[in-house]
Design a protein around this nucleic acid. Sequence first.
DNA 1: CTCCAGTTCAAACGACCGTTTGAACTATGC
DNA 2: GCATAGTTCAAACGGTCGTTTGAACTGGAG
Lengths: 208, 208
Amino acid sequence: METPVETTRERLLNVAEQRFGEGGYEGTSLRAITVAAAANIAAVNYHFGSKEALLRAAVARAMAPVNAERRRRLDQLEAGGSPEPEALIRAFVEPGLELVLRRGERGAVVARFIGRIAFDPSRRIRELYAAESEPIESRYLAALQQALPQASPDAVAFGYVNMLGLLALHQSQALSPTPGAAGPEDPGKLAENLVTFLVAAFDHGLRS
Amino acid sequence: METPVETTRERLLNVAEQRFGEGGYEGTSLRAITVAAAANIAAVNYHFGSKEALLRAAVARAMAPVNAERRRRLDQLEAGGSPEPEALIRAFVEPGLELVLRRGERGAVVARFIGRIAFDPSRRIRELYAAESEPIESRYLAALQQALPQASPDAVAFGYVNMLGLLALHQSQALSPTPGAAGPEDPGKLAENLVTFLVAAFDHGLRS
DNA sequence: CTCCAGTTCAAACGACCGTTTGAACTATGC
DNA sequence: GCATAGTTCAAACGGTCGTTTGAACTGGAG
């Protein structure tokens, strides 16, 4: 098997998503990233242009497979008629947690990065994340509204942001210090628990 | 009516919870806080000792009435026998959102501050928040487990962290950019929606 | 070999960070 | 009046921040 040497650009992206995921955007310096990536400080501005552009590139790269999988599942569901709420919730949540399942340690890093950036303190950065996943999100919102005709559009939107938020919180692993909280030691079980939790809330917890 | 002049210490705490709530801990400088509070930079170290000590004092002050109200409600519920899950959820969620209801603009600032700090990127700061609300939280966890005997302790703990996380997200107002998402324009309705959502999830969405 | 685009490098830029200093001001008790 | 404790102040501390510069290195094309 070949060992494709990581380029400086790739090493920067890898370390960036790890460090940004641990300390947040403001809490992580370019120097910390470049040292860990064995790269020169100036490499960031050479390859990306700025700290924020590095973050943008890292978000785009991390989100791409998740969004692609969501799109694929949504296409498939819509091709088969009107999907149940559970199928839609599953199609949204599972791609976000399969990262951890399918790519082990590395996937957990990516998941934490995504979860953290999605609710970064800075509105600017949250919007950067939102822009990356906006098209597919509006498709989900529409599908959910169709699958829950008895609930008002506002109620479905409320459920949707709750789903989004809970997924991000579990991805970011900020909930784990609580004892026995179905942590990422078994991401498959976590996904099942979260889907069950959300399905119940969508089916019985949305005001008409 | 007297106009009790705000002390420098109070102005610092007020501005700190506003700015920390907007930009996060790392993203907010002491200079930005002291300028807005019309205070000298050195006043922070004189009154509190350090930036982190200022944050700690602000968290303590902001959480005190919320924790007190939660304690009061829990005492009352436990005095009246075994409370329903809904009553427990209500007793946990409502004090966190009544801030906005009862104290208007200022309360919204406090709520956003609390919600933001609870899931700050830095583990150190999240633990600072957790330490502030730990005793009352373990009481809630125990009461919830008693109210949901058919669910395993792990499942109840899972529901609890989800409740905690969703409340913090709505407090932080990071979910609001989504259109019509029951934003804080009517916090009473938000509280009702969130309670309904959580009750359904607790009653039907916890794996035994 | 020469050339050249692509990449890396050490070094420095000005700006801002949290913190500290020591003097100046304020108000109360004697 | 004077002393005193509490508070505020301008100024500076050393350090780190993101960004920029211009030279040095790299490897293939002509």
